[in-house]
Nucleic acid binder design. Structure first.
Lengths: 159, 159
DNA sequence: TAGAACTCGGATAGTAAATATCCGAGATCA
DNA sequence: TGATCTCGGATATTTACTATCCGAGTTCTA
């Protein structure tokens, strides 16, 4: 069970975008985070499709959050990059083999699928309780309150 | 984020093994569940390495649970098949780029990694609260108490 | 006691997904 | 109006999962 590596870049990118009032080009984010520019752009497209960021074309274009950072949950970002399909997908093997359960009796998921879905629900719930603003605050606290200010300064400075 | 398909087979297999007092060959489990025999055997090897099942060679050999089903958690099975490494792995991109954080200040994981680890902790906790015995009871309840009896009858019958 | 049959175990191909990249379409500013 | 910079989807490469086979070891039978 491996989560896409792009989730990390997307989360860091959203935190960075939360510090900017002007659009930030994908190349700029890639430079800041030390990631492949083209690949990061692909993930930003996914965020755009999910309605988390808004893209602007042209010379002063770039990406920008569509909502306040406090209104964007980590779960949204994870699902935008990694997909919404649950990690465990039941293939209904109870309907196969010599003791197959007739399909008419399989209206509800089997006990195993229910257990796995319940656990994933706990996972999603935890992710939904954290917002991009929380992450920014946590990173700021780790750096004794200088990290986000440094990001804002770097974003406004011309490359 | 996609979990290995073998987890489903392993969980169903453990439930089946919990109904048998004699070793069950991998080929028998594969026949019951309608899965590729060789591939299922590979996953059973992983369960064996994790100490969840015990293998016996020879003519009357097969696989058997090492502990009562109530003492085996779903988390153990999932980790045995899918690995123990967390789904989200931080690549420490905070240490790269023009605003890189010096390594000396990275003694503890960054706020994003902490948040993701906390969520995974919730996931694991939910899986650890469910045992193989719970799954067997749930499946039995879905079938109005006939499923496990049918399994026991089928296991003792000669193919 | 020797043989044979059946078992598991690790090493070996094939396939799908994720990773990484490039070039074209569209929009903005000079 | 033109040039430059932006995003967006289509395209190769690598990784991990899926699936399989054959050899080593063990147990029962004759």
């Amino acid at each position: 069970m491996k989560m896409s590596n792009g989730v990390e870049w997307a989360l860091h990118g959203c935190v960075t975008l939360s510090q900017s009032r002007d659009p930030v080009p994908a190349a700029r984010l890639a430079e800041l985070h030390g990631t492949p520019p083209a690949y990061l752009a692909k993930h930003l497209q996914a965020l755009s499709r999910a309605g988390i960021v808004r893209s602007t074309a042209g010379q002063v274009g770039g990406y920008l959050l569509t909502r306040p950072a406090a209104a964007i949950t980590v779960l949204e970002v994870v699902q935008a990059i990694d997909g919404t399909s649950p990690a465990y997908r039941c293939t209904e093997i109870r309907q196969q083999g010599p003791l197959a359960v007739p399909a008419e009796r399989c209206d509800r998921p089997c006990a195993i699928a229910r257990a796995m879905a319940s656990a994933q629900e706990a996972w999603y719930g935890a992710l939904a309780d954290i917002t991009i603003a929380d992450l920014a605050a946590g990173i700021d606290a780790d750096s004794e309150g200088t990290a986000m200010a440094d990001v804002r300064r770097w974003l406004t400075s011309t490359a």
